[in-house]
């Protein structure tokens, strides 16, 4: 009866400490930094100095000045395209892995995850040296006599951005989709087969619907990572490599326009949150039905 109040002090202290850490660390390292740039986004920049005068000018600039809005929309379009392609690719790969025997599954899965152990920059440089005019692909095709002149448009083009982003972020889509498929109880599939479902029906009516949460997660990961990437497009996209992340980044250099940079970062964050919310909403509706 008195258990709650009679707990010895050290125990309470320890419990308190654990809770404080549980709440405090994320608060300190995630929430506080985010709130701080949200706050900066309402400050004023005047003659190169950041003043603590609240303003909406930075948000207004996004909608009215220059090409912020246009670049934002272009970047969303690019991210959506990469997401769509990667969702299809990752689903196919995850299904392929799912159909192997358990022992082989792990090996194949690990081989697809291997790029995640490599530095992001090394991967971009590799992609560049493959796609370049004197790159591996062009040299190989010329050596094989497939082409006489190097294909110039491979690197430093929208295609290159597309390929690079898709390659870089594919593992982030495969993993959640595969994990969702992996959780499908074997007896569901057995039951479907017993009831006479063809492999195609099984895929359409059992496997894919149950894999949907993973597909949603994979799509959200891909979209967020692609949308925020300010390095890959710049490095492989040539004169078309200007994306929204790059605009945000550019405000923190000599321009020292932290308020505008923060406002644009808040918009970026809001967009990604919206993507997460949208995915969640779609999944919930799925459940209700």
């Amino acid at each position: 009866m008195e258990t709650a109040t009679a707990r010895p002090w050290p125990d309470l202290l320890r419990a308190g400490l654990v809770h404080a850490l549980n709440l405090g660390l994320p608060l300190l390292f995630v929430v506080v930094p985010i709130l701080s740039f949200v706050a900066v986004s309402f400050w004023t920049l005047e003659e190169g100095q950041i003043l603590l005068i609240p303003t909406l000018a930075n948000y207004r600039a996004f909608f009215t000045e220059g090409s912020y809005l246009a670049v934002y929309l272009q970047t969303i379009a690019l991210s959506l395209q990469v997401t769509a392609v990667n969702l299809a690719l990752a689903t196919a790969i995850a299904l392929f892995i799912f159909r192997r025997t358990p022992r082989v599954r792990f090996l194949i899965l690990m081989s697809f995850m291997l790029p995640l152990f490599m530095s992001y920059i090394i991967k971009i440089y590799s992609i560049r040296s493959i796609l370049g005019q004197r790159g591996l692909l062009n040299e190989a095709m010329m050596a094989l006599g497939l082409i006489d002149q190097p294909i110039e448009a491979l690197l430093f083009s929208r295609t290159a951005i597309f390929i690079a982003l898709a390659v870089l972020y594919l593992p982030y889509a495969i993993l959640p989709i595969y994990l969702a498929l992996d959780r499908i109880p074997a007896n569901y599939l057995a039951a479907a087969a017993d009831l006479g479902a063809t492999p195609g029906q099984m895929l359409r009516d059992v496997v894919l619907p149950l894999g949907r949460p993973g597909m949603a997660a994979g799509a959200v990961f891909t979209f967020i990572l692609t949308f925020g990437d300010f390095v890959t497009p710049q490095m492989v996209g040539g004169i078309q490599g200007f994306t929204f992340g790059r605009i945000v980044f550019s405000q923190f250099g000599l321009a020292l326009n932290w308020p505008l940079g923060s406002a644009l970062a808040v918009i970026l964050l809001a967009t990604t949150l919206l993507a997460v919310a949208l995915a969640g909403l779609l999944l919930r509706r799925e459940h209700v039905r």
Partner: peptide, 16 residues
């Protein structure tokens, strides 16, 4: 004269 302005113009060039 104005770094912030130069950056904004440079962004315009790159977005063109």
């Amino acid at each position: 004269e104005d770094y912030t302005r130069r950056q904004a113009i440079w962004n315009e060039v790159k977005a063109a």
